[in-house]
Write a protein that binds this DNA or RNA. Structure first.
Lengths: 244, 244
DNA sequence: AAGTGGTCTAGACCACGAG
DNA sequence: TCGTGGTCTAGACCACTTG
């Protein structure tokens, strides 16, 4: 008999999905830290009163969603942001050959601001909350190519302005210091004209076309956690995406 | 005993992957047309000499890759491009609320051209082949918003210029008349300035920023089949993508 | 009622990694 | 050698669709 709720009349949810949600909740609640191994399939099956195959199906879905990583012969581990993973996954700029360069980052400023209506809406803030804005410029192949404003709820990321130096990939910082794992994001891309400030920072003409990327990033449990605006010079690099 | 090749010394490939490739080959070869039902899991298992569970695992992966569609109680069907599917999947423009409008299309010209080096490279053409270029303008909410050049190998799409009127979603035409199912695409997005022609067609100022989308579309068996350049006015709509 | 895919189980063996 | 995940099987029952 299962230890999980087992509805019989209207069967609300398959067992393996209950197992999956149960495991995700425990990861969110910190039972296992990022990088830590979960118990084996057999142990989890015993613990939850379901068969190993059911645990496997839950873990397979969690693998597809990048919540965990499985390695044959070693075990199942809570997903961890390595620099490379975070970059390769969310940094979409690539050269003609499809190769993503390693960006260098220089922080221009970190300050608290009053968010505008769209920021409040997207980050689901209360309208009186302060927002921390990190402005930086990222260089590709030594050339300043991206101006970026990162917007975070000050309440969720207290003291982030004191984190110096800020790492190139902020998502590893979010995970290590604030316990937030970014697994999903929604990006909205448009073409805009460079204003005087962006033009100067990126070394291009005012009015030159720039790619604006608005990224809303979500944690494992589906809450928006970061809003980011990137302004990219796409003369040498393009925003590349696979549609499947 | 399996009817499939069953290597034992070095086991080159799991059985279910062999089943998957076998089924995909048969779909490509036309054993079942788009929309047609495959045999049931049990029948396929018997036919191939593997268990139903192994067939299921193969079909599950094929479902994830959108090669087939499964419907409980009805059966497993070869994936079909409906207008809505093709649009929703590959047409990425969406308004502020994330809603994709239905584009209207007006064909400007269909003509044969000599491809440039990049077209030859991406479509893997021989350098002497002719390419058919379909130019059209697509309107969103009644406003001309996208200028588009579609490039196809004339050898693979004979007589496409005679297909009048061309449907809004070309992929349904490719599937129905030429037997090519587009399942994957790679897009490269950059910001450019509108030239005089695009500016006039889209009703914007020359030099205004436009989103250039270069799309290389692939068939079920991984061959590039279509190259497409779209120039989008992103004042009211943005190119939207989910990163997972 | 019959047939389909969806879920769940139990058990076997294989391939990999670490001690 | 042992423990892990990966593959494969066989069989049971559930849920949905159609006749």
């Amino acid at each position: 008999m299962s230890n999980l709720e087992r509805e019989n009349s209207p069967r609300f949810q398959p067992l393996y999905q209950q197992v999956k949600e149960h495991l995700i909740r425990q990861i969110v609640d910190g039972r296992w830290a990022p990088g830590a191994p979960l118990p084996s399939e057999a142990q989890l099956g015993t613990e939850l009163g379901v068969s190993q195959g059911t645990v496997r199906k839950a873990l397979d879905e969690m693998t597809a969603e990048k919540v965990v990583v499985r390695r044959q012969g070693r075990g199942t581990f809570v997903a961890e942001h390595s620099q490379e993973q975070a970059l390769f996954h969310f940094f979409r700029l690539a050269d003609e050959a499809g190769v993503t360069p390693i960006p260098a980052s220089e922080v221009l400023s970190v300050k608290d601001i009053n968010p505008n209506a769209r920021v409040v809406e997207l980050l689901k803030l209360s309208s009186t909350e302060l927002v921390t804005q990190i402005s930086r410029v990222r260089s590709l192949s030594g050339q300043p190519s991206v101006y970026e404003d990162v917007l975070l709820s000050k309440a969720l990321f207290p003291g982030i302005e004191a984190q110096q130096p800020l790492p190139n990939t902020l998502y590893t910082l979010y995970q290590m210091h604030y316990g937030f794992s970014v697994l999903k994001a929604r990006e909205r891309v448009r073409a805009v004209s460079a204003n005087a400030r962006y033009a100067e920072i990126l070394g291009i003409d005012e009015g030159a076309p720039l790619l604006e990327v608005e990224r809303l990033a979500f944690t494992i449990d589906g809450n928006p956690i970061e809003l980011r605006y990137s302004y990219c010079n796409t003369e040498k690099f393009a925003y590349q995406v696979e549609l499947t």
